[in-house]
Design a protein around this nucleic acid. Structure first.
Lengths: 342, 342
DNA sequence: CTGAAAGCGCTAACAC
DNA sequence: GTGTTAGCGCTTTCAG
């Protein structure tokens, strides 16, 4: 029966309790659906007052008591400052955000360009309930970051990677990169490809490595595979790099590690007067919206990035509410026909 | 001198206080830099213990006491479920996230497809310190959403819109859409354009309206302007809509309300055998990365979306820490030369 | 079935 | 300069 400050500021449990003439605990029980502990009559009365006062539980108070934040972090270590420029990241974020919001959780997004940059954000990150992490770099670099993040003691879900045994409280969600690339390579091979050029960026990325591996497995004993590493600074730079490579030693099949590379190869081929599909087959990987902006339409593989985000959120939610992670999940990529290959 | 639970769980003020043999308040004062109230000797000792115990202030406790969350929301009402597919949204989010993280704040992202969808997320949204909102729809629709959001009592920053007088605690950040479109139109007009076709999506968007207005102002008395409304369901559908329109009644200048429309027009023109730039000039708007994937390169206008995100975050931070919003901010778009117009 | 007490971690206000 | 008190809003525990 303290300062029942109706009207000013948000209503609290105490406001509702006073209005209903019951104790604060009874209101709490009603709010949390502990129906067995409250009589129907009182329950209805309390519910009415809750509506009247527009009472919404304060996450701060509840969080302090329960040691929870109702917020999950998505940490992306990506060489670009505009880390969200990559549609893969973006779709993962959208999928997570939507899924979490449905469950009353919020998604906090943290981009870092390198390990040191990440350091500064650790104090804020450490206050969350759990983390989804999407980290670029080679195995050693990624493991170093995972270890550092794991030290925060938060449940962690790895995106696009497999959970290492050294990570105690972790799981993962990834997609079938190797299988997808295998399938694309098979398509080219069955249409006569004998000299394959695989294009990938100059920074390491597990997905890229898996795609290259898939291509090489398919080609083993049937075709040569060479890898071209492109500095991804800007699109036009990639186009001229490919152009040079195509004129010097022309392959019959260019496999872009992602659609950007496939599109760059398409433009290079066009500029050099190659007959695409006949002289030179081209494929990409990912199948995000911008793929359609390039002509002829790039043959590609759709990455279920949005679904990966949803699955990541679901796994994290399960870990938080049920106490344990589900096993790692692998989502399938899907063939996207186009006009640049067979 | 209670349970000094060193080792298990995160350290608290009490742990540090016990370790240093001082009171909890002294530690708090050190942590918060209230240096005038603590002797140098003690300050150093406490700082050492803080490092030893890896103490990080718990935002939950601090937040409860101070009625703060150290988190800001970005609410986007966008017809697409994958709301982050729009690079504009994405860059705004990245800019905000980076800027906020530098200041120890987190960014929570909420996408909603319509007003009802938003309703479900309100309870979670209401727990934040402030909101940036980016809402599509006509003036009435946007105002309705602003009003609903304003009822939460949170400081609000409007993105891509001007703050309405009816909004008590609000500011805005937008870009010079009208001026940019005026400039693009002028370019076409000075190169002989007399029949302009302006393409925009079937849902309303303030930025679009401003761009159309800019084009019409430039053309007034010098050229005809017609508007074509496209159902933006998918890219190929837009291409065929333009194709039909171009053959039926060919303009000499197509102004795309954004790059997607400009690129669609480019592909349509190519398929119809128009000579781009000579028979038909084309421009777009936004200048995000994917613009380069289309050939010939679209003449366009760069939108400073990332910078808008940074400015939005800065304004919100000022409001939260200093108590008042800065005035609205208008950022300039920037001409991007290309090969589709003059 | 209902309520009173205790305390999550922190800081403003006020003693000493 | 330093410490004590009170309490932000909530839920677990335990009496009634």
């Amino acid at each position: 029966m303290k300062k029942n400050q109706q009207g000013q500021g948000r209503a609290t449990l105490r406001d509702v309790a006073d209005a209903a003439g019951v104790s604060i605990m009874t209101v709490s029980n009603v709010v949390n659906g502990k129906t067995a502990r409250v009589s129907d009559e009182i329950r209805l009365l309390v519910k009415e007052k809750i509506k009247d006062l527009k009472y919404v539980p304060h996450l701060r108070g509840r969080g302090l008591r329960l040691a929870k934040d109702f917020a999950i972090g998505l940490v992306m270590l990506h060489p670009e400052r505009r880390f969200l420029n990559d549609p893969f990241n973006t779709e993962v974020a959208a999928g997570m955000s939507n899924k979490l919001a449905q469950n009353g959780y919020g998604l906090l997004i943290f981009g870092a360009q390198n390990s040191k940059d990440l350091e500064n954000k650790l104090p804020r990150i450490s206050q969350l309930d759990a983390l989804a992490v999407y980290i670029f770099g080679d195995t050693a670099q990624r493991d170093a970051v995972y270890t550092k993040l794991a030290a925060l003691g938060l449940p962690m879900l790895l995106i696009g990677d497999e959970a290492n045994d050294s990570l105690a409280d972790a799981s993962f969600v990834r997609q079938t990169n190797e299988e997808g690339a295998f399938q694309l390579a098979e398509l080219g091979l069955s249409n006569g490809a004998r000299k394959i050029l695989f294009m990938r960026p100059d920074h390491f990325w597990p997905a890229m490595a898996q795609r290259e591996l898939g291509a090489r497995k398919a080609a083993a004993g049937r075709a040569d595979v060479e890898t071209m590493i492109c500095t991804e600074i800007n699109f036009q730079a990639v186009v001229s790099q490919v152009k040079t490579r195509l004129s010097a030693n022309p392959p019959d099949f260019v496999m872009g590690g992602n659609d950007l590379f496939g599109i760059a190869a398409t433009q290079a081929a066009l500029q050099l007067g190659f007959s695409i599909k006949k002289d030179l087959m081209i494929t990409g990987f990912n199948g995000f919206a911008f793929r359609e902006y390039s002509m002829p339409l790039l043959t590609s593989m759709r990455s279920p990035a949005y679904e990966i985000g949803e699955a990541a959120a679901a796994a994290l939610l399960k870990r938080i509410t049920k106490g344990s992670f589900p096993g790692g999940k692998v989502l399938n990529v899907e063939f996207l026909p186009g006009d640049t290959c067979a």
